[in-house]
Write a protein that binds this DNA or RNA. Sequence first.
DNA 1: TATTTTAGCACAACCGATTGCAAGAGGCAA
DNA 2: TTGCCTCTTGCAATCGGTTGTGCTAAAATA
Lengths: 343, 343
Amino acid sequence: MEEHRHVTIYDIAERLNLATSTISRALKDHHSISDKTIKKVKQTAKEMGFVPNTLAAGLRGNKSRTIGILIPTITQPFLSSLISGIEITAQKSDYTVIIMQSHDSYEMEVDLAKSLYSNRVSGVICSLAMETKDTSHFHQFSNNNIPLVFVDRVPRDYDTFRVVINNYLAGYKATKHLIEQGCKRIAHLTAGSEFGTLYNERKRGYMDALAEHDLAIEDDLIVVLKHMTYEEGVKACNQLFDLKTPPDGLFAPGDILAVSAVQTAKKRGVKVPEELAVIGFNDDPISEIIEPNISTITHPAEKMGKAAAELIIKNLKSVKEEDAKEITFLNTQVVVRESSKRI
Amino acid sequence: MEEHRHVTIYDIAERLNLATSTISRALKDHHSISDKTIKKVKQTAKEMGFVPNTLAAGLRGNKSRTIGILIPTITQPFLSSLISGIEITAQKSDYTVIIMQSHDSYEMEVDLAKSLYSNRVSGVICSLAMETKDTSHFHQFSNNNIPLVFVDRVPRDYDTFRVVINNYLAGYKATKHLIEQGCKRIAHLTAGSEFGTLYNERKRGYMDALAEHDLAIEDDLIVVLKHMTYEEGVKACNQLFDLKTPPDGLFAPGDILAVSAVQTAKKRGVKVPEELAVIGFNDDPISEIIEPNISTITHPAEKMGKAAAELIIKNLKSVKEEDAKEITFLNTQVVVRESSKRI
DNA sequence: TATTTTAGCACAACCGATTGCAAGAGGCAA
DNA sequence: TTGCCTCTTGCAATCGGTTGTGCTAAAATA
């Protein structure tokens, strides 16, 4: 196997008897280089198989045209769509995407943040780990003018960009939908309050919707889960069905949970939606396929990814314009399907 | 906002009155540096908030401790699990993962390959785009001793690492299972022959299983799809159901297709599995949730990702040992669920 | 005590692209 | 012919670690 060494601008310079600076400029159509030279250089570069070394360019400019993504896991449909949106947008502007999974561990998140910094990423998009309470490991970005965008699972108090949906409103809308379908005892699954604002907001929406319609908020009907998994969903649902007066509606803040509810109900002979109306969250592909189809709240993952990436890229161009670190709210919609349709 | 400049080994060297070489070596426990110095350097580095610049290191050594992933899309469950496996393994060895989506376009794949090379990735893991026939854009890696591993959708004739399942055997097993359930007219969906070996192998297995059991291979029962999507699956199934003598079994080389079959059957009043036994492929989450549950063939995505990443990392250590570019076959299993259970 | 060995550290080149500044060539007006 | 300006191109420093080689002083050996 022959050993090519990488072709550099030095090689091109030598071949054409020009300075490397000229090559460098010619390759990016710098105005101070004559068209003749530009054409010649590009031609030769192609002939010689020149591929620029982004490491060198990055080192010199101390920026790498790289967007770092730090998320709990990529296998969740929401997150993989998010990444996809980021990657598509990044690609258009010639940015590269690097991905790291925290697996919801605070410790890993801290390590990986350092690793991203070490890679001199141009910007960071992050959805926080479940465990994370302290966010000081992100200061290294803020302090060094590296744009930082939190998505979906965002910290409550951090002055930076945030791309989210209005979880409160979404929770409210979901619950209201169930109420409109005639539900009187609506259950809700949620995460411990220590896990950031996301689930709390949805819960607030849930509670406000109940209150607004003069429905009692019963502690029995609110089940706190440790993890938002199918298994815990099943457990929670069984617990709910075992109540003296079981719920007639359920707002699950995730489609996997909604699926677990639908299936548990089926197993126990509880009819959906007649005896239990269910609405999920996220509009995962699965919600459209299971029977009955699950009503849900859209969660525009890819759009959020695109928005986040655009924020970074835009912000990199117009350096620190000190525009307030805005919060981008994307819209959600109630998708009514069979699992909640009573009327 | 205060502007920190990045702390470098020069800063540490100055502070401690040592040479940068000493700092560099001390930070990686080089044997020629005294323990005292090492301790002192590490201590100071931490105090000053030093974070190594991987770009600089990469430039010098012409390797970036980065694994490039080039796949059609990350939103498919199989592929996102694959990435997850790669990322987990990479993280353990302190490698970074960069991701690019070809969206099944040959042109993009060529571009992105160049981009990966431009980033001086240490290794590449790729699952080919549907469109790709010519693979010469990967020569740049092979020619420069950059380990290249193809996964799942691999080229037929490229001397490099490949991590795959035995698609022939899997197709055979799937079909045989249907035969054992009493199916006599087994249909099969497949992709055009120009799309690499993957679907062809499954089809070969299908055909051999039929032949072995003295079942006729009928062209009518083999539907060639342009894309392996839900919509095309529905179309294909309708076409099959419209036959004078419709099939009584279906081997779909993907769970999404199997889902489309099950749902189309339901819509048309065809009973699954009684009138049509269905088996899918991949063991996507969805196959366990839809009703009836779909029998399927496991496709160990995460394991394949890990195997691929390990191949790269291992190969990077023991430089070009010229061990034949092995093919790693991972096992698959038939998972029998309701959609095909007749006996 | 003289000499060899070794531990510990410094020097400086290097990786490859970028960019501010300098300078040479050619054109044009005075 | 001289001077000035514009257009092109070259020089050289720079980004921040890495590493082969060389030097010095202390430790080990004769």
